[in-house]
Design a protein around this nucleic acid. Structure first.
Lengths: 221, 221
DNA sequence: GGGGGGGGCATTGTATACAATGGGTCGAGA
DNA sequence: TCTCGACCCATTGTATACAATGCCCCCCCC
């Protein structure tokens, strides 16, 4: 893996695990010394992260970790609801006992992370479950897109998620595996859709609009 | 629009219109003098184009316009087949006569471009029809993804498309508008799926594998 | 005491210089 | 004449220098 890629992975990991919380500033200089490279390399990574919506770069003000707003959160979940259930049909023909084993191991990791109250690990493992599944579809473009959506979901869950919305996953995911083992495409698809809708519904979206306050209306007597 | 953005748009346009054909090299220096900036600005744009799969950057060898292979072409079309038909349901509630007018005008442009044998224009207008439609879904994330897929499709059509696969679109697109005007969601969805499948089927994918030649097998007596 | 303006500092934007890599060409030897 | 090798040039990778911007604080004036 190239050096840039390593830096990218490390920063992305830190963002997803909320070691770099939403809103955190990412000064080029500090990162440059931290990784032992010049600002040039850091800028490249930051711009990639910006294109993928993990950070926001404001001209002449630099980068900070994206703080997804309500609209973005809902759109990410809606995108997943539209795509992931359909991928079930694509991946089921390839599904075999080896995959089943691998994914059941992953579910166990999720459960133990959850029981130890390692929220960050739990969220990340949940994301991984979903995008590893997407990869089995065989369509690398869609798999990459789902992967990005899952990572963005990690950010969203950490910001708007309730404990319940994350922790119910462990049990849930193994149910999907049962359906896949039975080659029950329709119920597996339905399960996936309901699962994602459940997560979407569990988000706490305080609807106080911080933006677009209509001062004129507000202060007209 | 920022300066970078302008450069990005110009290069992207040139790629989609095949003024920069697949495989064309994009030396940083030449582009830098062409746009009157230093290599720094060009590199940023090229890396963005690379992340979006319009160019390929090979370390120490630079950038060239992506030449989509068979697999990539099929995956792009499959992605669109999975997403776009479903978006019909999302956009139909917002569909009104104003939209209808706008899109019918677009179809006319497509037809005239096609009649004048302006293949590049025709391909691009077709792409635009699809992603403008996607934008009406209200989900900006999916719309942006579809937009990217449509642009990639332009590259693919120019490389693998038959004249028929492009030119049949003009008449086709207006049929979809009729269905949308009738608020016939199911048939509009079906139309979209068939339309994309038709395009996919019309690609000429010569299956001579240029890569991964198995010399060992080839030359073992 | 409060508000507005100016200056300094921290940070990013852009260009350029130098290092490193890859490919192509020219020449020597078989 | 063909092949292998070394050198050179074109191009990219990386670091650094300087310019430009924005923010914050302080001071001055009202």
């Amino acid at each position: 893996m190239s050096n840039d890629e390593k830096i990218y992975q490390q920063i992305l990991k830190a963002i997803i695990e909320h070691q770099l919380p939403p809103g955190a500033r990412l000064p080029e200089d500090s990162l440059a010394v931290a990784f032992g490279v010049s600002r040039t390399g850091i800028r490249k990574v930051l711009q990639r992260l910006a294109l993928e919506h993990f950070v926001v770069i404001v001209k002449n003000k630099g980068a900070q970790v994206n703080r997804p707003n309500e609209t973005e959160a809902l759109e990410v979940l809606d995108s997943r609801i539209l795509i992931e259930p359909q991928l079930i049909h694509e991946l089921l023909p390839h599904w075999n006992t080896t995959h089943s084993q691998t994914f059941r191991t992953m579910v166990q990791e999720e459960n133990s992370a959850e029981q130890n109250s390692q929220l960050a690990d739990s969220i990340q493992l949940t994301a991984r479950f979903h995008y590893e599944l997407a990869k089995l579809s065989g369509n690398r473009i869609l798999a990459a897109f789902v992967e990005q959506l899952c990572y963005r979901s990690s950010l969203i869950l950490a910001a708007y998620g309730t404990r319940g919305s994350v922790s119910c996953d462990g049990g849930d995911h193994s149910k999907l595996l049962d359906l896949l083992d039975k080659k029950d495409a329709n119920n597996a698809e339905k399960w996936m859709r309901d699962h994602l809708k459940h997560i979407k519904a569990s988000l706490i979206l305080e609807s106080r609009e911080e933006q677009n306050i209509d001062f004129k209306r507000l202060f007209s007597r």
